[in-house]
């Protein structure tokens, strides 16, 4: 029984880290049509910034978010203005082109990060990352717990933003009706710019969150990217709640599966589930 509760707890925590990576990606894709393959590389950079904030200035990465979030927001908006708008002007269907474009950006960012910080793997160690505490019969590490807190705050903020603010609702309108949204008086350019900015900002937060659990290096962006794709497709492009639930679902699926089948097959379970879900509901779990 303890093992089951532990598996559920761990699964949810891991799932939250998938979720926080996915929501920004999903938001940007939904609002602008851009599939941002550099999203997780931005997250990695966020992780590095948090790491060095601690190493050089003794500032906890969570505090460093105060600087990281607005900084990344600005970069995101700049990214939209500088690269996405020209792309949209030149291509009819943005999908595949945006993948390649953002892949190019990711490669550049990866190399720059390697040059600046070397390829050596990094581990964040704060006061809480080596501690743990119980939740019922299960035990939780300090790092994963903090990561979960960050993730929940980010997700809640996004949900609130989308429900309560004008821009948030404008984004949802853009997703649902890209052509028609402009006709209803929505400033598409502004909305898209903000959406991309928010995407980058959440990527930075996600990077800090993930650094509380995992060792990271410049190449970490690739496996993170695969899981981001996975949960966004599973949860539904453009959704925040859908992607969050998908993340939790994915984390749970792998964790519970590993209770009954050999570990090497646990990831396969996730892949198969994804394929099945896509067959039954091609637009994802929650997408309408």
């Amino acid at each position: 029984m303890t093992q089951l509760v532990q598996a559920v707890t761990t699964g949810l925590l891991v799932g939250l880290s998938y979720a926080v990576l996915g929501v920004g990606f999903s938001l940007t894709w939904g609002a602008t049509g851009v599939i941002n393959a550099s999203h997780t590389m931005v997250a990695v950079i966020g992780a590095y910034l948090g790491y060095f904030a601690l190493a050089w200035f003794g500032v906890d990465p969570i505090i460093a978010l105060v600087v990281i979030l607005p900084l990344f927001f600005v970069f995101g908006w700049g990214f939209f203005e500088g690269l996405v708008r020209p792309l949209k002007k030149r291509t009819r269907v943005v999908g595949l082109s945006s993948v390649v474009l953002t892949l190019g950006v990711a490669l550049v960012l990866e190399s720059l990060t390697k040059l600046a910080a070397t390829a050596n793997p990094r581990l964040l160690q704060t006061a809480y990352t080596s501690r743990s505490f119980p939740i019922g019969p299960a035990r939780v590490g300090g790092g994963p717990a903090m990561a979960a807190v960050i993730s929940l705050v980010v997700i809640a903020a996004l949900v609130g933003f989308r429900q309560r603010t004008y821009l948030g609702r404008a984004m949802r309108a853009l997703e649902q009706e890209p052509e028609g949204a402009a006709l209803t008086g929505i400033d598409v350019r502004l909305t898209s710019g903000v959406a991309t900015g928010i995407g980058f900002a959440t990527a930075g937060a996600a990077g800090v969150a993930l650094s509380m659990i995992y060792v990271f290096s410049p190449t970490s962006y690739l496996p993170w990217l695969v899981f981001t794709f996975l949960v966004v497709i599973l949860g539904g492009v453009g959704t925040v709640l859908g992607v969050s639930l998908a993340g939790l679902f994915a984390g749970l699926a792998v964790s519970l599966a590993s209770l009954v089948i050999p570990f090497v097959w646990a990831n396969l379970v996730l892949f198969v589930l994804l394929i099945l879900v896509l067959l039954v509901r091609p637009t994802g779990l929650l997408r309408r």
Partner: peptide, 19 residues
């Protein structure tokens, strides 16, 4: 490293100007 940077830039340029 430099090759990858160049390659990444190339991708961006190609997509924008030679879609």
């Amino acid at each position: 490293d430099a090759a990858q940077i160049l390659f990444g830039v190339l991708l961006v340029v190609v997509i924008l100007f030679m879609p």
